[in-house]
Design a binder for these strands. Sequence first.
DNA 1: TCAAAAAAGTTACAGCTCAAAGTATATAGG
DNA 2: CCTATATACTTTGAGCTGTAACTTTTTTGA
Lengths: 162, 162
Amino acid sequence: MPNSPQHLHDVLVHLRRIIRATDLQSKRVVKACGLTIPQIMVLRSIEALGDVTVRKISDSVSLSQATVTTILNRLEDRKYVERVRAQKDKRIVNARLTESGLEILKTTPPLLHEKFIDEFESLEGWEQTQVLSSLQRIAMMMDAENLDAAPLLDINSPDSLA
Amino acid sequence: MPNSPQHLHDVLVHLRRIIRATDLQSKRVVKACGLTIPQIMVLRSIEALGDVTVRKISDSVSLSQATVTTILNRLEDRKYVERVRAQKDKRIVNARLTESGLEILKTTPPLLHEKFIDEFESLEGWEQTQVLSSLQRIAMMMDAENLDAAPLLDINSPDSLA
DNA sequence: TCAAAAAAGTTACAGCTCAAAGTATATAGG
DNA sequence: CCTATATACTTTGAGCTGTAACTTTTTTGA
């Protein structure tokens, strides 16, 4: 007999801790290289996908279009990114890395901290797999509500951010 | 041979999705009852702990003291919470639920959406346990960096939020 | 052809989040 | 007693985040 209410409560508690830890890691990364994790993810996404629309970045990093716009604003202010309007369809804006953008990207540390990486790598293969699949399961269950509204995402879209 | 780099990347991707889903759920909850998830967590924490200091709330909900202060500001503006300065030690501020605070708390929906709850409860007991322990593992590994700096937290502090 | 609908982005707004600096109070050591 | 340190909290400043409303451009259908 699973004690679901208690387990659900615990799920929430752990999720909150994870979210907080992610945030703290982002502050640490800022100190190291001057960029936040979301900024780095956007830059990497542009690097991986080449000249790319805001929509595609937004899908690839799992952030709303509006959020990506504000992140791009900051990156453009700092000259790490250029926006180029497409000739063909003038609604479309393509983001492109500048030289400095490419440079700064080389200085960025791993997005998960060293201790995490060490610990994770010290796990047995099957343990890594188990942790990963649990995480995936949670992610899918949490996304359920949203996927309904927007059913058919492009499953083949490249996912090569972090 | 575990493929750690790939696994690490996947961990990050899933974490981002989870964080986003949490955010979206918070917006959904706002529409339902006018309070965000962090606000509800703070209210519940006060309900559970009685008159309670900002520091204790902050520990119990895994948010910084500064964040709790801003959340309390909003809750106080809306008369859900009162701040009472301690007689003995005037540095200390105790938060207390008002009548309306207690009322509104009764109207708050579950903090994880229905589909999540259904799906989670439909898992076998051992699966729930596995998911939970993976989550706990991730949370602990991600926290490692922070626990170092502030080693001795009060392990016995009540955890009865969400 | 041309108005209506759709699509891509941006803006406005409100809340969350933290570190660091600031304020007020309490405690400890000389 | 009185200064130095520590504690409890608040303020400040900056970035992240999403929804809803908006602009511009394209597509669709009568």
